[in-house]
Simulated scan of single mutants.
Amino acid sequence: MERICEPELMEDVQQAEAYAAADFSSGDRAVLGRIDDLLGSLGTGDGERLSFVDLGCGPGNITFLLAERWPKASVLGLDGSAAMLAIAERRRRADPTAWRHLRFRQQRLPSRQLVGACSAVVSNSLLHHLHDPAVFWQSVRQLSGPGTQLYVRDLRRPASDRELEDLVHRYAASAPEVLRRDYGHSLRAAFTRAEVLAQLEAAGLKGLQVRELDDRYLEIHGPSLPGRLA
């Protein structure tokens, strides 16, 4: 099935609120668990020496989980949507003491402001939104240094319209109409495993693992070492 891009930013307030109200907790917790596994011994303790950047953080679902799991880590959530970040900031300001090491910033990719290595670059469901995926991998390179770990989970494009319709029915049948519509658009805008492998090859990121998860996701993870970058 041919890829058809969707809008890069979710800027409509009603759309952002519907997304934030949806229950993604099971998948979000699974992402946190995979990040914890990826960090290994580095992830033990309260995260005092850890730093995370969450690319495409949306309303902050994963970002808050990172800050909760590692309360002394520096956690930065980046997103281009003002509507999404308004929700994230509202959540953070509800208890600023609890989230004192957590920050959000409006940022579109690519950006020259993304400099310096962090412990881990995390992204959940951003890649398929980008019309040019190269800007995503460029951003990963900018944030990478010795020991930086990468964890990305994103949708993968189904092979046919029929498969797409089945996925929307299976996972979004009871969701509000705006979410059902957006989910279908996102599936059509997503990349296949072969396409992601080609993107990584073009970006010079050769040490990452790419695998298909269940019937709709891709997982990309591993260390991004500067010595392996083109």
Rank of each mutant, 00 (worst) to 15 (best):
F52Q: 02
F52L: 03
V53L: 05
V53P: 01
V53D: 03
V53Q: 01
D54S: 09
D54W: 07
D54K: 09
L55D: 04
L55C: 04
L55I: 15
G56A: 07
C57W: 00
C57D: 03
C57F: 03
C57M: 03
G60W: 02
G60Y: 02
G60I: 03
N61F: 08
N61Y: 00
I62W: 01
I62T: 13
I62Y: 02
I62H: 03
I62E: 02
I62M: 04
T63E: 02
F64S: 08
F64V: 07
F64R: 07
L65T: 01
L65D: 00
L66I: 10
L66T: 11
A67N: 09
A67D: 11
E68T: 11
E68Y: 06
E68P: 01
R69K: 15
R69V: 10
W70L: 08
W70T: 09
W70F: 12
P71N: 09
P71I: 08
P71H: 10
P71K: 08
K72P: 00
K72D: 15
K72C: 08
K72F: 10
K72I: 00
K72A: 14
A73R: 08
A73Q: 11
S74E: 15
S74P: 00
V75N: 10
V75S: 09
V75T: 15
V75L: 12
L76E: 04
L76I: 15
L76S: 01
L76H: 05
G77C: 15
G77N: 13
G77V: 14
L78R: 09
L78N: 11
L78E: 07
L78D: 12
L78V: 13
D79A: 12
S81H: 09
S81Q: 11
